[in-house]
């Protein structure tokens, strides 16, 4: 049984008289306690999937078709208020850029405890106590001091730890991590990834991990979906993907990566031929679904 089920999701951006497809019948399924990697180049639509789940789609983006089922319930049929009750409690987000994802005029403690008081209905004093415990859990030294600090007083890695604590604070069933380490230094990235996985295992959370870095995917994901132009090209286990990629495009992405342990390995950009083929496929899909 799966926790999250995205079925044939089609999203179109309608601006003035033009309309652009953002997602083309995307289907994904997430098991309890597993990590699904959503991989693609910029513009592949991977963040759009996250936005659709989190009810953060841009005003002009319309869901034409499809279904998002969370815990057997259709998210798209819920009212705004019902959906808000899930967000932050059962579904949480770890954002991309820790430098700008914390409110500069509010303390770390406020960020943490407002979620707790809002979703769990506990008192402010109790929330503060729990917040300190959470900071301790994400391995922040001196949580008693950090809780009253403002975000500008913390380093990027520390801020990402705080955001991770926020995401896990209400023991959500699903966490969406949107390129959570792209903005970090590589050494900090490793520590943050370790932390995310440690927390994910501890709480048995399902994790939707959005990234463009196949190296990171190999280290943290159980299952991988490769996206291109709003389509899912391949959806398989991480083991299978790195052992024998099923799609030429996946292969091409791996071949384009430089590797420090294989200095003589040639790096090959994705070939124009492959891209043209993929774009032709996209056009075909669009024509076939034009009247749906």
């Amino acid at each position: 049984m799966s926790l999250l089920e995205v079925q044939d999701l089609r999203v179109t951006l309608r601006q003035h008289s033009t309309s652009t497809r953002l997602l083309r019948d995307v289907s994904l399924s997430m098991e309890y306690g597993k990590v699904l990697g959503l991989v693609g180049e910029s513009g592949a639509g991977k963040s759009m999937v996250a936005k659709a789940i989190l009810d953060l789609l841009p005003k002009k983006a319309v869901i034409d078709k499809g279904e998002i089922k969370f815990n057997q319930n259709s998210l798209l049929r819920l009212s705004v208020a019902e959906r808000r009750k899930l967000l932050g409690k059962d579904i949480a987000l770890i954002p991309q850029d820790p430098m700008v994802s914390l409110n500069p005029v509010r303390t770390i403690g406020t960020h943490l405890s407002e979620g707790l008081t809002h979703h769990l209905g506990i008192t402010k004093a109790e929330a503060r106590k729990q917040s300190i415990a959470l900071l301790d859990e994400v391995l922040i030294r001196d949580p008693e001091r950090v809780i009253d600090a403002f975000s500008h007083e913390l380093s990027g890695g520390m801020r990402q730890r705080v955001l991770i604590a926020m995401a896990f604070s209400c023991s959500p069933k699903l966490i969406i991590a949107d390129e959570p380490t792209t903005a970090l230094d590589v050494t900090v990235q490793k520590r943050v990834l370790s932390l995310i996985r440690m927390m994910q295992r501890k709480q048995n959370t399902s994790l939707l991990f959005i990234t463009h870095d196949l190296g990171v995917v190999a280290k943290i994901c159980d299952q991988v979906a490769i996206m291109y132009e709003g389509r899912v090209l391949e959806n398989t286990t991480a083991k299978q993907l790195f052992h024998s990629p099923g799609h030429d495009y996946t292969r091409a992405l791996i071949d384009a990566m430089p590797r420090f342990d294989q200095p003589d390995k040639p790096i090959l950009p994705v070939s124009r031929k492959l891209k043209e083929q993929l774009q032709a496929e996209t056009r075909e899909v669009d024509q076939a679904t034009y009247n749906d």
């Binding site: 967000l87 409690k89 987000l93 954002p95 700008v100 409110n103 509010r106 926020m166």
Partner: peptide, 20 residues
């Protein structure tokens, strides 16, 4: 981004406007 973050945490528009 911190507003997007607050929206993703399920706070209402009025709350975010006032507090964040």
């Amino acid at each position: 981004d911190y507003i997007t973050m607050a929206r993703a945490r399920g706070f209402s528009r009025w709350y975010i406007l006032r507090k964040e």
